[in-house]
């Protein structure tokens, strides 16, 4: 059984990719934060994957613009919910390991990820990132799976 104190999340990391599932995850993070009288810190991070054919420092303005829109949307959800959200944009070869590095760097207590209903060859599929995070996370991981009808 989990001790109640162990669920005291103070720092929450929400990786976002621009899907509707992210919005659900951010709203859930805000609800958790409000339940702690807004004592939590919420970090939203968007990772732009860089192909191996390009240098890691390559600037892709269209991807940066898209990322800025995603993070702006996340910030406005936070504003509506009354919870300030710190947003960060990163670019890396691999999304999963970057999320883990970010969680360690920031010392978060929880990684909260939204998941949409994806199918691969007719089978429900979590993709690559979520299993990697579940396997390597230095903290608790909460997966927010929205109903298929909500997506």
């Amino acid at each position: 059984m989990v001790d109640k104190d162990e669920l005291e999340f103070i720092k929450i990391l929400v990786p976002v990719a621009g899907t509707t599932a992210d919005e659900g995850a951010i709203e859930l993070a805000c609800r958790l934060c409000k339940s702690k009288n807004n004592r939590c810190e919420i970090f939203a991070v968007h990772v732009i994957p860089v192909e191996r054919s390009l240098p890691l420092d390559a600037e892709d303005t269209s991807k940066i613009d898209a990322a800025e829109n995603i993070l702006n949307n996340i910030e406005s959800i936070g504003q509506k919910q009354g919870c300030p959200i710190e947003t960060e944009m990163l670019q890396a070869r691999d999304i999963g390991s970057t999320i883990i590095d970010e969680a360690k760097k920031r010392g978060v207590d929880l990684i909260l990820m939204g998941v949409s209903y994806k199918q691969h060859f007719g089978q429900f599929c979590l993709g690559d990132v979520i299993p990697y995070v579940l396997e390597n996370a230095p903290c608790r991981v909460l997966i927010d799976h929205q109903l298929q009808s909500e997506l």
Binding site: I48, L56, D57, A58, E59, T61, L90, A92, R93
Partner: peptide, 19 residues
């Protein structure tokens, strides 16, 4: 330009995009 990719100590580390 408004945005720039910050250098990192390790060549394989994720890069922060300064906004």
């Amino acid at each position: 330009s408004g945005y720039f990719v910050a250098p990192a100590k390790s060549p394989t580390s994720p890069r922060k995009i300064v906004r």
